[in-house]
Structure formats: C-alpha cells, structure tokens
Write a protein that binds this DNA or RNA. Structure first.
Lengths: 113, 113
DNA sequence: GGCTATACATAGTCTTGAAAGGTATTCTCG
DNA sequence: CGAGAATACCTTTCAAGACTATGTATAGCC
C-alpha cells in the first residue's frame, strides 16, 4: 500500500553513464561492471541484474557498445563489452550534463538564509 | 529514429525533493514552485506543467502536503501547498539520501589514474 | 553430491517525467 | 475595446527505465 520507497539502489538516469565510465577504463563483462560499480562506490551503489542486462542491450542498440563472447580468468563464458567511439562521446556528453544538473540541483537545495 | 536525447529537464527522482524544498521555505502555489525552481537554478531546471501538477497530486496522496485554494498577490485564484510534518521528514530523508547517492556516483565517475 | 559464486537472461510491474492538449482569468497596451 | 501575454490550473497518454522474480548454466570447493 503506502510503502514509500526511499533509497532506490541507483539514482535513475545515471546507469548508462556509470556503465560507460567503467568501460572507458577497460572492456569488461556485465557481472564485472556491476561489481566494479559496487566496489568503487564502497558498496553504496548496487546494480541489479534486472537493471544491468537490459541496459546493456539498449546500449548495444544505440551503438555505444560492442560485445563479444569470451572467457574470464575464472574460465567462465562471459560477454565482454567495449566502448565504441560513439559510446566515448556519449560518456563525455552525459557526464558533463550530469555535473551541470547536479550543480543546478544543489543551487535549489542549498539551505538559504 | 535514433534520436538519443540528452538533457532531460530534470534528473529523474529529484522532483519531489525539490518541490519539498521550496515548500519548506514557505507555502506556495504550483506555478510559483516551478518559477522558484527555475530561478534558483538560474534557468537550468525547468519543471513542466505536465510533470508538476501530477507530482503535486501524488504528494498530496502520500500525505506530504496539504493544499488549499486562495488568492495570489496578483489577484488570481491559486492552490497553495504546504508541507506537513511527514513532508518535512520526507524532505530530510530524501535530501540526505540524495547527497549520499551523489557522493557514491562521484566516486564511480572520478577519473582514476 | 551439494553448496556457493559466477555469469547471463527475460517477463512483468510500477513509477515517473514529458508531450500535448485543454480551460480560465488578469493585465497591459495600442 | 480588442488582442495578446502572462498567470494558473488540469488531464490524458506515452515512453523510459529500474526493480522483482524467476530461470538457466557452469566452475570450483569441500
């Protein structure tokens, strides 16, 4: 009923950006992306499977990523994602828009006298 | 076709918080809330009608706001919204969660060596 | 053999922001 | 007076995206 969820795992609208950012460092498979984000955020951000894989597929469709199957160090079958040039451009656009947005929000939220 | 819009008017998930914040300063009608947010953000954040009024109604339903009809300084009929104690609590919860979230995202986005 | 961790996937639900359309009133200005 | 801009509200419809739940499969370990 009146469950008013606070604390979504992620701030909506930032998932693409963070995926792009992890892949900008090096190509990686999905599971590793989620782990990387969790680790870098000290456990505060949790990317759910059900958010991650659909997002990756949408991003493939947009041409920001390429994917190919391979094997992990653990000898496991996994799909490795790599940024395309369009993806790199997108990362820059998204993160600068994000920074601007955050600044604007902080202006609004700043406790004024 | 492949139009990938950047620049939504608002970062999703932050509208309630900003509405609560403006009303924490003083009771206000909808149109004024939108203007206040636009002004405080120096024009960077634009709250559309079609986002604002449905959001206000949802917030009434959640018990975060109360509303009553009155007249503006301009001699116009308008609906004035006021924070309830639950709304004030919600504002604090949301903004602290937001700050935490932002810090976590910035950890992820920080360009590492 | 059973357990845990790794790795991927999808169907279904819900929330939410935006677009598009609408009503009505006040004020200004020519 | 008439036109237009600005103020103020509202609703319907749509699309995107994040989450839940569920499922598959395999590797490594005890």
């Amino acid at each position: 009923m009146g469950e008013d969820n606070l604390n979504p795992d992620l701030l909506p609208g930032t998932l693409y950006m963070m995926i792009l950012r992890t892949l900008n460092q090096e190509p990686m498979h999905g599971y590793a992306i989620a782990k990387r984000i969790r680790d870098w955020s000290k456990g505060d951000l949790e990317v759910e499977d059900g958010s991650l894989y659909p997002a990756l597929n949408r991003m493939l469709g947009k041409g920001w990523l390429k994917a190919e199957w391979g094997m992990t160090e653990n000898n496991r079958r996994a799909r490795f994602y790599k940024l395309t040039p369009a993806g790199k451009k997108r990362l820059e656009a998204e993160s600068s828009a994000f920074n601007k947005m955050i600044k604007a929000i902080q202006l609004v939220m700043r406790t004024s006298s």
